[in-house]
Nucleic acid binder design. Structure first.
Length: 171
DNA sequence: CCCTGATTCGC
DNA sequence: GCGAATCAGG
């Protein structure tokens, strides 16, 4: 990939918006974050808007208290393979408002404070539970730290539907 | 270990 | 000019 005017413009824009070099790299595609940083320097853009200051990096969700949290959801029924996708979807949309409610309830109350990442911000270790309507502007992914077992954080892995074919199989 | 940007230097 | 490797740091 070469630095076309277009790509340079996009780079400038995203850099000004405060995205990290790696995020910009994944958006541009075909370049590494090193390449982005190198280019940024050659363009003498290093300063970057001064405004926002330091790094927003991981704010940890308030520490987990063992407080018994009720599962906000109806569980998917075990059979009906055909409707399974729909069932999972239903769970998702039912769970979400409940989860929000939980956050606002009291400070003792626990979990799902999502980092609300966009698709491109996901890594192999961020929870990929979707938040909200995929067609809306606010659509995001949970983004909390995913467990070693799967693509979701501890909380969402309990809500996620696991296809039988992936429940116990390598290869 | 995850991530960040900065710098160096062979190409 | 480019960017991988490396460094320094949160």
């Amino acid at each position: 990939m070469n630095w076309t005017d277009e790509r340079v413009e996009l780079l400038k824009k995203l850099w000004a918006e405060g995205l990290s070099a790696s995020q910009i790299a994944t958006q541009l595609g075909g370049v590494s974050r090193n390449a982005v940083i190198g280019k940024v320097h050659r363009l003498k853009l290093s300063a970057r808007g001064r405004a926002s200051a330091a790094q927003p990096r991981t704010k940890k969700a308030p520490s987990v208290s063992p407080a018994p949290v009720q599962k906000p959801v109806a569980r998917p029924v075990r059979s009906a393979p055909a409707s399974v996708g729909a069932t999972a979807l239903a769970v998702q949309f039912e769970a979400q408002p409940a989860a929000r409610a939980m956050v606002h309830m009291s400070e003792n109350v626990v979990l799902p404070i999502s980092r609300n990442l966009t698709l491109i911000q996901l890594t192999e270790r961020t929870c990929k539970w979707p938040n909200g309507d995929p067609l809306s502007e606010e659509f995001s992914f949970c983004g909390n730290e995913a467990g070693e077992a799967g693509p979701y954080c501890g909380y969402h892995s309990k809500l996620a539907y696991q296809p039988a074919s992936e429940r116990r199989r390598a290869r």
